[in-house]
Amino acid sequence: MLLISCPNCGPRDETEFHYGGQAHVPYPENPNDLNDREWAEYLFYRENTKGTFAERWVHSTGCRQWFNMLRDTVTYDIQAIYPMGAPRPDAAGKVTAETGTASTAADSTTTGTAAPSIAATSTATSTSATSTTAPEGATK
């Protein structure tokens, strides 16, 4: 079971969350202009990355807030957790996560205040309390 650090509630079991699939898939700006191929891409085609993947989760039985996560789809290691609307942290996010020293600030975010933050990597066997608590600027 994954141990997921909710930006608002801290580390909780995976069973408290629901999965939302690939992150950063915006609704088409001009839906009327889309052809069938483009609609197919929007509706049915998603990245299926083997490796670091940006995805959405919602803390259904907690704060009920959505957030984004960078997770390795092979090791299942969680590399970063960051607010909806914030840009995906770059590769430096992973390095920071491993050393656990600082979070990676985004250049700008649509939510204004939130910066991507780094969660400690957690897996089913991890019982340590090393996960970060709610990051500053997390969306409420």
């Binding site: 994954l2 079991d13 995805e55 789809t73 092979v74 090791t75």
Partner: peptide, 13 residues
């Protein structure tokens, strides 16, 4: 398991 994964293992719950 709900999440995308290539790990040939899932969660115990």
């Amino acid at each position: 398991d709900s999440y995308n994964g290539y790990g040939q293992r899932g969660s115990f719950h």
